[in-house]
């Protein structure tokens, strides 16, 4: 695995420019050498079975979208990938979450280390009540990253998030003065400043207006060249626009308790999911008949 070359990972590397939709590329049917995988992932909150047997693999330099009706467990799965679910006292995770073949839930693994490799952007923009500069510098500072010149790093991160031109004159001002869309791009900049490998995005545009949403989506497509992105969205058009692969989740009520347990219905290339889904439930959801 360690010897995998980029050619192995992207057999069609040569035809990468051959893009049909903005988010769609020619990719193998299933990710080769996935960066992350979940195997028989089950999540419980106390007695409540939130997610049942999820098996997914996330390809390198791909955008994987997880879609489905609310309560289907897609955010729960996302939060397992960088162990943010640890913060919920009642949460219990079974199965494996593999990152480069290593189970991140193994006892010897440090969740802090996991999160330096796997960053996260949240539903609601959550900048820190600090200056724009300090928001970016925070991650490198706390993780003890060796930084030659913090100013350069801040600029690089802000450029990476397509925010530099808008904020370069007010780096010392509070991040709370930015618009919602700018705040969300700041949160993305903050995440890439720590040089992660994978970026998780939990409905990153649900609090934004359509114009801000479009900018974040463009940014996601740009970031794909350097990062692996896993995004949860309730917006099917967004999944269709940006993602390479789509996983469709749904919720199944328990016969006895009535609690709804999330499960994975179908996982395929985005083009397939949206044009020719295998499962009736996926088709119903995509066509708007359900959910």
């Amino acid at each position: 695995m360690a010897s995998a070359t980029s050619a192995d990972t992207f057999p069609q590397m040569g035809s990468l420019g051959d893009v049909h939709m903005s988010g769609e590329r020619r990719l193998p049917a299933s990710p080769v050498n996935p960066v992350m995988e979940t195997r028989d992932l089950n999540v419980f909150y106390g007695d409540f079975h939130a997610v049942h047997d999820v098996n997914l693999s996330y390809g390198r330099h791909e955008i994987t979208a997880m879609i489905g009706p609310s309560g289907c467990g897609k955010s729960t799965v996302l939060r397992c990938l960088n162990r943010m679910n640890d913060l919920v006292a009642s949460a219990r995770v079974e199965g494996e979450v593999l990152y480069h073949g290593q189970d991140v839930y193994e006892k010897s693994v440090d969740p802090i280390a996991v999160r330096t490799h796997i960053g996260m952007v949240f539903q609601k923009p959550n900048p820190f009540p600090k200056s724009i500069y300090d928001n970016i510098a925070y991650g490198p500072r706390v993780t003890g990253m060796k930084v030659d010149n913090m100013d350069d790093l801040v600029e690089e991160a802000l450029r990476g998030a397509a925010l530099w031109d808008e904020v370069k004159d007010k780096l010392k001002q509070s991040a709370y003065g930015l618009s919602g869309g700018q705040q969300q791009r700041l949160c993305i900049a903050r995440t890439i400043a720590t040089r992660p490998d994978v970026i998780l995005m939990d409905e990153p545009c649900s609090a934004l207006d359509p114009i801000a949403t479009a900018r974040v989506e463009d940014l996601m497509l740009e970031l794909r060249n350097e990062y692996t992105i896993i995004v949860v969205t309730h917006n099917m058009q967004q999944a269709a626009r940006v993602s390479d692969r789509t996983a469709f989740f749904t919720a199944r009520p328990d016969e006895t308790t009535g609690n709804r347990t999330g499960l994975l219905v179908e996982y395929d290339l985005t083009s397939t999911i949206f044009s020719n889904p295998n499962d009736k439930r996926t088709e119903d959801y995509i066509s708007g008949r359900f959910g």
Partner: peptide
Amino acid sequence: GTTAGPSSGTGPRGVPNLKG
């Protein structure tokens, strides 16, 4: 995992150390 995040790379990479 503690002194530096992984440098994002397109090339081959080692298995990251997740031991804090």
